[in-house]
Computed example of a mutant assay.
Amino acid sequence: MNDGNIIYTFAIWLVPLVVAIVFHEVAHGIVAHYFGDPTAADRGRLTFNPVKHVDPVGTVALPLILAITHAPIFGWAKPVPVRSDRLRNPRVHMMLVALAGPGMNLALAMIAAILLALMPGETFAAVLQGSGGFIADNLFNFLLINVFLAIFNLLPIPPFDGGHVVEGLLPRRLAKRYARLGRFGFPLLLLLLVVLPMLSPNADIVSRIVSPVVTFVAGGMLTLAGMGS
């Protein structure tokens, strides 16, 4: 890969990112529909057409900025609408709906690991050196992005998926108070990803907490796929 070619860099990150976040959102909608909430289906969101899910900031602008600055690339799509009051067992089923997104990402990551393991050994070695070619580079980034999205979304902070799981486990009174934090979702995201790392490297939860877990899980998947660590 030509490190100076920002178009190539953006392409090998944007393609796997869009696929990963679209499948993530569709998984939420499919599981919600299974448990009684057809809202996503009624609004035409149970589709893998990325146009239906693209968020101008989270799917395009932010990944582009991160690619240009050589920062870890991630993003989000427009959330698939889910009405917990239409689920048959709102507390339990909402947790399962929340877990469906990260679960889908981990499944996709494992598929990427298997496909990488099927490639010639020298191809994967080239990927690690940044010169594996468009398909190989996309597969490797697809693995990393999916694992990252799964782990990051499981952080116990509303409105992340992990926040919905915590909400379902808390007593009802505490769950309602906890859910109110969801209105501060975007400011919390900026605080965690931008403000705290600027104030102190020790407060960078991505590099200190999320990234090590991503590296461990991705390495484990490659090992299970037969590639070794």
Rank of each mutant, 00 (worst) to 15 (best):
I7K: 07
I7M: 12
I7P: 06
I7D: 10
Y8A: 13
T9V: 13
T9L: 13
T9C: 10
F10T: 14
F10V: 15
W13D: 11
W13F: 15
V15F: 15
P16T: 00
L17W: 07
L17G: 02
L17H: 04
V19C: 10
V19L: 14
A20E: 11
I21F: 10
V22A: 01
F23V: 14
F23L: 14
H24P: 07
E25F: 00
E25W: 02
E25V: 00
E25H: 01
E25G: 04
A27C: 11
A27M: 11
A27L: 10
H28V: 08
G29Y: 14
I30R: 11
A32N: 05
H33Y: 12
Y34I: 14
F35C: 11
F35M: 12
D37E: 13
P38N: 11
T39H: 04
A40E: 11
R43Q: 14
R43K: 11
G44L: 07
R45T: 03
R45M: 02
L46T: 01
T47W: 00
T47V: 06
F48E: 04
V51T: 12
K52D: 08
K52F: 03
K52Y: 03
H53C: 02
D55F: 00
D55P: 02
D55T: 01
P56T: 02
V57F: 15
V57P: 09
V57R: 04
G58T: 00
G58A: 08
G58K: 01
G58S: 05
V60N: 05
V60W: 08
A61N: 03
P63T: 07
L64G: 11
L66G: 10
A67P: 05
I68N: 09
I68R: 07
T69F: 10
T69V: 10
H70S: 13
P72F: 07
